[in-house]
């Protein structure tokens, strides 16, 4: 070990961490990310260096995952698409109509973090922290107020997402599955008239000119996470690893609250564009949405996540488990 110290004193080894995300360059999220990584580079005197591939230039989440496995990349921000391949059970957090407030989201993420950290580690990843995508809402050309309104819609859906598939099936809709890049055309031609997205995403993808209504009830809360490959983690000296993960821990909560604020502001922008916000349903109408949630949750339990995990989540949220 003495020798190691000596060599590191002469020429400290540089640890290059290649980080990829589909989040666009220039977004607040990416700006924040650059601030964090710059701070880490400065604090470690350049011993840890981040190379950032933003905006999907390294491919979509599945390709990024493959590149991490082959060692081309070391770190990435993943959401449901990537989780589906890494640790599908995380997607229990993406269930439709699950959370009723950000407080519930935070509580669930905090309490389940040790559990998921351990399971990510078994899959070869270190969970640096959660990095949420945010609340996803339903946007449509015709108002969707109650569950029954879905039946008449031409809804778009991601292809190959089991949760979306089960949800639309419970809503009585056969969605039109298209790649994201085709949706703008499909909305403008009328091939689809109902989409779901976070408000910021809707603006970024420029789908907003083609929709008139937004239902204020979140369709789902999309969870994301920053993952570092275990192989890289093990190569890092312990104190560096600890430093990096504490830096991300510190700044991610700021990032999350900023993102939430931005999504709220995005909703205001949408209002200014003439999109009508349909207030959250209450009473019986809300119960119908909850019934959809229950149907999807029970249909997928045992397939994507275990029943005991679902029960644990319901326990944290104080829901009855029947």
């Amino acid at each position: 070990p003495g020798l190691d110290l000596e060599t590191s004193a002469k020429q400290p080894p540089r640890y290059v961490i290649k980080f990829a995300t589909v989040a666009p360059e220039g977004s607040t999220w990416m700006k924040q990310m650059r601030t964090i990584t710059q701070a880490i580079e400065d604090e470690t005197n350049g011993r840890v260096i981040f190379r950032i591939y933003a905006g999907g230039v390294a491919g979509d989440e599945l390709e990024i995952l493959k590149k991490i496995r082959m060692g081309q990349l070391q770190c990435a921000a993943f959401s449901g698409v990537g989780f589906g391949k890494i640790l599908p059970e995380v997607r229990v957090l993406d269930l439709p109509f699950l959370f009723r407030s950000y407080e519930e989201v935070d509580r669930a993420l905090r309490r389940l973090k040790p559990y998921f950290s351990q399971h990510f580690r078994e899959k070869g990843f270190i969970l640096l922290n959660w990095a949420e995508v945010g609340n996803v809402y339903v946007f449509s050309k015709r108002p969707i107020r109650v569950v029954g309104d879905f039946r008449k819609s031409k809804a778009w859906s991601w292809a190959g997402d089991p949760i979306a598939k089960e949800t639309f099936s419970a809503l009585g809709v056969t969605p039109i599955t298209l790649p994201v890049t085709d949706v703008t055309t499909a909305l403008s031609t009328g091939l689809v008239d109902t989409v779901y997205a976070p408000p910021l995403g809707l603006l970024a993808l420029q789908w907003h000119p083609y929709v008139k209504y937004m239902n204020a009830l979140p369709f789902a809360h999309s969870t994301g996470a920053l993952l570092l490959s275990s192989r890289t983690w093990e190569k890092l000296p312990q104190e560096l690893g600890k430093f990096i993960s504490s830096e991300f821990e510190k700044s991610m909560s700021t990032m999350t609250s900023q993102l939430r604020q931005q999504n709220e502001e995005a909703i205001d922008v949408l209002k200014n564009h003439g999109i009508t916000i349909i207030p959250e349903p209450t009473g019986q109408a809300l119960q119908k949405f909850d019934a959809i949630h229950r149907r999807v949750a029970s249909a997928l339990s045992g397939k994507i996540y275990s029943y005991s995990l679902l029960k644990q989540l319901y326990g944290i949220l104080g829901r009855n488990t029947r």
């Binding site: 491919g59 493959k66 082959m70 081309q72 790649p179």
Partner: peptide, 19 residues
């Protein structure tokens, strides 16, 4: 210093691009 087998990640995009 990158594993050149990663070129096949790109090749297999042919099997996953609807366009």
């Amino acid at each position: 210093g990158v594993n050149y087998q990663t070129i096949f990640i790109e090749v297999l995009r042919l099997a996953d691009a609807p366009l």
